[in-house]
């Protein structure tokens, strides 16, 4: 993949790669709190079937995932585990922060044990607001992410840097 990393890939080929990446997102579910149930509704219920968007839920390990949905309250005790999960995922990787708690602390904005926003630990691509967001909102977030992926410059995202685990 030296060509991709160097950024010298011809444009049509980039487009093709992006389209195929967009419609084969493997999403790792990091269900933490209330939002995990709404994420379960979106992923596992017949009403909000997420696979029609080309998103495949429930890979066995983060090492197989392209996208992680952080759904729920991130506590200070949980934060190192989330950091480690993110570092286990192979590049290119994306993060959706689902729900007010993961976005900014939500109703626990003055709690002593809650991390106010998962973006303090890992970079976030799409924020889905709500407490908890409806499953439709999560689907909207996934569609937004897919649009982002479709217009992406591969060289910028896929740097091929070595994995560093603290």
């Amino acid at each position: 993949m030296g060509l991709v990393e160097s950024g010298k890939l011809p444009k049509p080929l980039t487009k093709l790669l992006n389209i195929s990446r967009k419609y084969s997102m493997w999403v790792y579910q990091w269900g933490l709190a209330c939002c995990a149930i709404e994420m379960g509704s979106a992923f596992a219920s017949p009403r909000y079937d997420v696979m029609r968007l080309g998103v495949i839920p429930f890979p066995a390990s983060p090492r197989q995932a392209d996208l992680v949905v952080i759904s729920g309250t991130v506590t200070d005790k949980m934060a190192p585990a989330i950091r480690r999960l993110y570092e286990q995922m192979p590049d290119p990787k994306y993060v959706i922060s689902m729900g007010s708690c993961a976005n900014c602390g939500g109703p626990y904005w003055d709690s002593y044990s809650v991390t106010k926003g998962v973006d303090q630990i890992i970079p976030v691509d799409v924020y889905v607001p709500g407490c908890p967001p409806r499953p439709e909102a999560l689907l909207e977030g996934i569609v937004l992410l897919q649009e982002m992926v479709a217009n992406e410059d591969m060289a910028a995202k896929w740097k091929g840097e070595p994995l560093v685990v603290n």
Binding site: A81, S111, Y112
Partner: peptide
């Protein structure tokens, strides 16, 4: 404790 959000204190 991984989901302790401090309800009693809040």
């Amino acid at each position: 404790g991984y989901m302790h959000r401090g309800y009693e204190k809040l």
